[in-house]
Computed example of a mutant assay.
Amino acid sequence: MPRRTCRVVFTTTFAVSCLFSSVQSAHAVLGGSPLTPPAGASTSSHTVTPLAVAHAASAASGATSSSSSSSSSYTVQETTFGNGTVVREYLGANGSVFGIAWHGPQMPQLTDLLGTYFPQYLAGVQAVRAARGGGHGPVAVEQSGLVVRSGGHMGSFTGQAWLPQALPAGVGGSDIQ
């Protein structure tokens, strides 16, 4: 009987974890391609032209009306998951994700969102927690090649991550929201 119980528990746990990962997994990669929304998620996107770049372009051309430079524009793609968590991806003109922001009742899978930057983030979190004597709570990892800010509490999580070297002209970390 215990063997059968173990098998049932394993099978159930495996099935639930597979279902959860297929629904919640974002598959976006900071510095890479945007996510492919999972089933049940809704998406929207819009293009943004930073004001500082638009004003500089109009001043340089002597134009009185605002003009925009397509090379400095970026796209914000927003995905709302079935659980209510919202992930915004900031894509440069080359289609690469230079920033990500999230908010909602559940944390997104940071391993998916940060991609190859995830180990760097973990090392930064460990360093921050060691410096303050451990514990939990909001985390800010600010390095020359990666910035991640994450916090919240059960039912309300927020965060931003960006690559400072990949930010388009006229875009700052505060624009990743």
Rank of each mutant, 00 (worst) to 15 (best):
S21T: 13
V23L: 15
Q24I: 10
A26C: 08
H27M: 07
A28D: 03
A28T: 15
V29Q: 13
L30D: 07
G31H: 06
G32E: 08
P34H: 01
L35S: 08
T36R: 12
P37F: 01
P37T: 02
P38A: 03
T43L: 03
H46G: 07
T49H: 12
T49L: 01
V53T: 13
A54M: 11
A56C: 01
S58W: 05
S58N: 07
A60F: 04
A60D: 12
S61R: 14
G62W: 02
T64H: 12
T64A: 13
T64K: 10
S66G: 00
S66W: 07
S68M: 02
S68V: 14
S69H: 05
S69K: 10
S69V: 15
Y74E: 08
Y74F: 15
T80Q: 04
T80G: 03
F81H: 14
G82H: 10
N83Q: 03
N83S: 12
N83K: 04
G84V: 09
T85E: 10
V86D: 04
E89L: 06
L91D: 07
L91W: 09
A93E: 12
N94M: 01
N94D: 15
N94C: 00
V97E: 04
F98P: 05
F98D: 02
F98G: 02
I100Y: 03
I100D: 01
I100G: 02
I100F: 02
G104L: 04
P105F: 07
L110M: 14
L110W: 06
L110F: 08
D112N: 15
L113K: 03
L113M: 07
L113A: 08
L113I: 02
Q120R: 14
Q120L: 08
Q120Y: 00
L122I: 11
G124C: 12
V128N: 06
R129V: 00
G134C: 10
G135D: 08
G137T: 13
V139F: 07
V139H: 08
V141R: 09
E142I: 15
Q143W: 05
Q143L: 14
Q143D: 02
Q143N: 06
S144F: 05
G145K: 12
L146E: 01
V147D: 04
V148C: 07
R149F: 05
